[in-house]
Write a protein that binds this DNA or RNA. Structure first.
Lengths: 190, 190
DNA sequence: GCGAATAGTGGACTGCAGTCTAATGATCAA
DNA sequence: TTGATCATTAGACTGCAGTCCACTATTCGC
């Protein structure tokens, strides 16, 4: 698998790195819509085609740039069993909301972009959306196993409700803070 | 208030009507992104500027066109007191989902557009989003008054959870059917 | 070194939303 | 009738994402 030595000129990894770095910085500084592809490639010192050799669209590039910075925030909740699932869920949501204070505007733009491009929608969903939803689902299942959540509850639907709540807040530009996280958890475990 | 006779040439109401009709038809036929402003004005037999005299963007025009067709579906739940609130909520959601089968793709495009244009975001939120959220909030309050919902629940948060769930499904291109409506209601009243 | 294969470069090109302009048309008030 | 005011028209224009092209550069197997 790894022995596949491709023929031809190898891709310049510095160019990819520069594009991601520049894109993330510009997008955070100016906002996704105010950053043109021309500005990104100029500051990265790279030709237009080089960008499109690696990514299909501006959205794909920015997604990857944000994604690399994001795993820090979206780390799996610790399964040490010391804390109850309710607290774990709350902490998990609070951490997501913290990340959204930095990249929330960019994420909103990527969600918008994903509605206009079916290919990007699949990529965005697989890399960003599904993993988080599955973490929440797993956490709720665990809560049921430990008896913190009534076994009659539909975990998949609960997960959609929780996940949807902060998407809705994000897209409606509402407040996403620790208080909202606590309220969500309170209603989930009510 | 109504006696304000404006000076100058009056706006041609036929042009507005034609633009809305053509826009809605084209958008439903081809999808929002595949319909160009040029196509709309050509088929409406109207100059470009005439469109932009009345609406700021393509999104504003389509929003208004969809909105006029929509009130049929988003009618206030009947308050006759005969049915319980749980059933009313279920029917309300089912009716919304029915409308989304027709205009869901367009709505997704408008949500995307609203993330890229602050002015349109305000208009979309005020005309489309808030009214529905308030209907659900009112319904849940009523459920509390009638003792169908525990008085300890946070109605505003519940409303956000419900509303978010179908936004999330809509934007994730998931299934929005009567079964999902029932599941949402079941978890809300659980 | 040579040819095949692939990457990078600069720049032209397309299609789109939205803006702008100059001219013409409709309505009212005096 | 005349002038003020606003609407409509046709079309030029801007700025953008993404595509295309001709050419150059780098790496491989031989």
């Amino acid at each position: 698998m790894s022995g596949k030595r491709p023929s031809g000129r190898p891709a310049n990894q510095d160019a990819s790195a520069a594009l991601k770095t520049v894109a993330l910085r510009l997008v955070r500084e100016l906002g996704y819509d105010k950053v043109s592809v021309s500005a990104i490639i100029e500051q990265a010192g790279v030709a237009r085609q080089t960008l499109y050799n690696r990514w299909n669209t501006k959205a794909d590039l920015v997604l990857e740039a944000v994604f690399e910075q994001t795993n820090t925030y979206a780390a799996e909740p610790s399964w040490d069993g010391a804390e109850d699932c309710r607290t774990l869920l709350e902490d998990f949501l609070i951490r997501i909301f913290e990340h959204l204070r930095i990249d929330g505007d960019t994420l909103r733009a990527l969600i918008a972009a994903s509605q206009q491009d079916a290919k990007f929608h699949r990529s965005f969903h697989a890399n960003f959306v599904l993993p988080r939803e599955q973490m929440i689902t797993a956490l709720l299942h665990r809560a049921q196993d430990r008896g913190e959540l009534s076994p009659g509850r539909n975990v998949e639907v609960l997960s959609t409700l929780i996940h949807g709540a902060f998407w809705y807040r994000l897209l409606s530009r509402g407040v996403l803070d620790a208080g909202f996280a606590k309220e969500i958890v309170a209603e989930t475990f009510a």
